[in-house]
Design a protein around this nucleic acid. Structure first.
Lengths: 194, 194
DNA sequence: CCTACCGATCGGTAGG
DNA sequence: CCTACCGATCGGTAGG
């Protein structure tokens, strides 16, 4: 006889992530989540201490997924291949992997102690990882050195925003390539460069 | 004897905007809002039919402000001056004018009919205005013609994202200029261009 | 004493 | 614009 606990936990996180993205942290109740999963509400509390624990578990899983994307990207050589790999991973990944980015603004609803702890982790992994890649690229002369790495990270994260947020894109791959092309080359025409 | 109703309405929107940005649509109650404004809860309902009406009133005011920024920007000649004017207006404007951008994701909590009506208005004014400016610039050869205007708008709105969202920036003017510089020139070094 | 739940209800608060 | 409330639902927990 096999325990179904791990599967139940997985289904809780999957349904909760979908509902949190759709309606926000305060937009769903533990009752609705329980109904969507197909268990009773007290059963949710058996698996997760409270609503915040459910939310933070989703964020941790998603952050681990983003971290893996960063590792795969950094294994490439050259900033073009690295960010291309990252953008491709983001556009090809299911909704689940992007949810960390989509749900990040909802962290404001989590109690300060738990929020700050996770935010530290998030910033270190995600913004830290991007910052490292861009700073090393600047060191190799592959990107402009006149802008602080912070601003480069900001610009790149801004360009990634349409890939993660809002309604699903019609042609995510093409949009990803277009955004990356703007990030590297800008929108000013450059007849000299083919 | 002067009626204080207009002032009360203004204060309701001001406090509500602050609270909605801080804690999200479902994160504040009409009781909290009444307390913050210094009126009773039923008094709120005297001025606005319901919670959604308060939220949508904030969005309409903010969209009118964004529309004025677009008008001022379009009066400039050349896409550089136009977007520069727009970014400067965004970074110099108080928090109030940016709230339409910050609160846009919270529209998902508004009932479909009222939401769709506003979203149409929003898209026509904001994305439509940006699209018009960028398409005309492409027609003048000031921006790349190989990317669809939709993608150019997406890229620009993505770059604007850090200006509006998240914690207030330390040096908004410099960040605005850096983001605009990436939008126009990209991050690839161009030794030939001074 | 464990995992995996159940039906019922707690004290408070939501929008109106 | 107030006091005084409503139907319902909120996040979380009781005993078994």
């Amino acid at each position: 006889m096999i325990s179904s606990a791990p599967d139940t936990r997985r289904r809780i996180l999957s349904e909760a992530a979908r509902l949190f993205v759709e309606r926000g942290y305060h937009g769903i109740s533990m009752r609705e989540l329980a109904l969507a999963v197909g268990v009773t509400k007290p059963a949710l509390y058996h698996h997760y201490a409270d609503k915040e624990a459910v939310f933070l578990a989703i964020m941790e899983v998603s952050l681990a997924s983003l971290e893996q994307m960063l590792v795969d990207a950094e294994a490439q050589s050259g900033i073009h291949a690295q960010l291309g790999t990252l953008v491709q991973a983001l556009t090809e990944s299911g909704t689940e992997q992007r949810m960390g980015l989509q749900l990040a603004p909802e962290l404001k609803h989590i109690s300060p102690e738990r929020r700050h702890s996770f935010e530290q982790h998030y910033r270190r992994v995600w913004m830290g990882g991007l910052g490292r890649m861009l700073a090393q690229a600047a060191g190799r002369g592959e990107v402009r050195g006149d802008l602080p790495p912070t601003e480069l990270v900001r610009a790149f994260m801004g360009l990634l925003y349409p890939l993660a947020m809002g309604a699903p894109l019609e042609r995510p791959r093409e949009t990803g390539e277009a955004l990356l092309s703007v990030f590297f080359g800008g929108v000013t025409p450059q007849p000299e460069r083919p």
